[in-house]
Amino acid sequence: MFINPMLLQTRKKAFNDSDFIYEMKLDGFRGIFSLINETPTLYTRHNNIVTDRFPELWNVPFKEDIVLDGEVVCFNPLTKQIDFEGVMERFLTKNKQKITQRAIAQPANFVVFDILFYKGEELRKLPLIERKVILDEVIKDNQTFSKIRFIEGDGVSYFEAIKKANLEGMVAKYKNSVYQPIRSNQWLKIINWQYTDVFITGYKKDQTGWLASIEEDHRMKPVGVIEYGVSPDERKAFYQVSKSLITHEDQQRVYLDPAIRAKVKFRN
């Protein structure tokens, strides 16, 4: 049973408001988890079924029909921190043998932040804070299912703690919000943007994307691809300058001498 998720509006700064609750923004992928007639189904936010990729989530700590909204995350076994690359590796794995192996080596956790349907009853029209009470009664944390923690009122201090811990950001939700399949300003995300200087060491041939690298041990280490935030004039200037910096190319990319630098912001 798929339910279109309620989405977040972006807000630049943290704020204090007694009518809001504040949650950590988790670095995984959004999921709608359904258990109907004892059959578990995990959907992405775009209504793609990925249940078979996360067999550890089939062992649910409840038996009644239910629909939950949450985030699928993995934890680094060494640091115990949320591992975005780990959960994306799990998400992209389709081979049955590898799925079984990775479910043991790096199990996923479904962190629940909302309950939308329970025992045949539609809950989306209830205020969020009432849904949280029901969720707390229904879900008992275990190794694969856990409830997200939230605080009330002091969003500014909470966001400062998130920044110090180098986490992705914070979500602010209006206590009395009903659950709607829209992007709403009653649910807000405040991102802990980080900034760094990089060298542009190439670009993609098939689509706009600049290859970003940093210098490490006197060598260029690739760290990502810049695809957003560049104006048309900046793109035009880049491609004019880059012609004289080409060193070689392959079927997908053109590589450059690291003569162009940029400051980028990133979130994980």
Rank of each mutant, 00 (worst) to 15 (best):
G169N: 02
D217G: 12
V156H: 05
Y118L: 12
T44I: 03
T10W: 12
G28K: 00
V133G: 06
V178Q: 11
F110P: 11
F110T: 08
I151H: 02
L57Y: 08
G169P: 07
F29M: 06
V67C: 01
W187E: 00
Y158P: 03
G28Y: 03
F91D: 00
E130R: 11
D154F: 05
D52F: 14
E137F: 15
L42C: 08
V171Q: 00
K204L: 14
L68F: 04
S34H: 10
Y203H: 13
W210G: 04
V225Y: 06
F20V: 03
N37Q: 13
D206K: 15
I190S: 02
H218W: 10
D257H: 11
I3G: 04
P77G: 08
D114E: 07
I226A: 04
I21R: 00
E56G: 08
E249C: 02
D52N: 13
L57G: 09
R90L: 05
R53A: 07
M1Q: 09
Q252M: 13
R183K: 14
R45H: 08
R267W: 12
V72F: 06
D257A: 11
D217T: 12
Y22W: 05
F2A: 01
G153P: 06
K94P: 10
L126D: 06
E64V: 09
K265A: 01
T196N: 10
V156S: 05
Q97N: 15
K12Q: 10
E23P: 05
V178K: 13
F266Y: 15
E215Y: 12
E89H: 14
M220E: 08
F150V: 04
E152F: 09
K265C: 04
V171E: 00
A103N: 15
T247K: 06
I3S: 04
N268P: 15
I99Q: 13
T51P: 00
R261S: 14
K63Y: 10
K175Q: 07
R235F: 07
I246T: 08
Q207K: 14
N4I: 13
V138S: 05
D217C: 09
P77I: 08
L42T: 11
K243L: 12
L57Q: 06
Q207I: 11
D69M: 02
H218P: 00
K164L: 03
K265L: 03
Q251V: 09
L92F: 15
N109K: 15
E216L: 13
T41F: 09
P5A: 05
P127M: 03
D114L: 03
N48L: 08
Q81T: 12
K63A: 10
I260C: 11
E85K: 12
Y174T: 10
I49A: 10
T10F: 13
M6S: 08
A14D: 01
P222I: 04
L92W: 13
A259W: 15
Y179H: 06
L7V: 06
T247P: 04
I139M: 01
F238K: 05
T44P: 00
D136A: 12
T51I: 09
R149G: 05
E227H: 07
V225S: 05
G86K: 02
G31H: 03
L211D: 02
Q207F: 13
V254A: 01
F159V: 06
D69K: 04
I162F: 01
R261M: 14
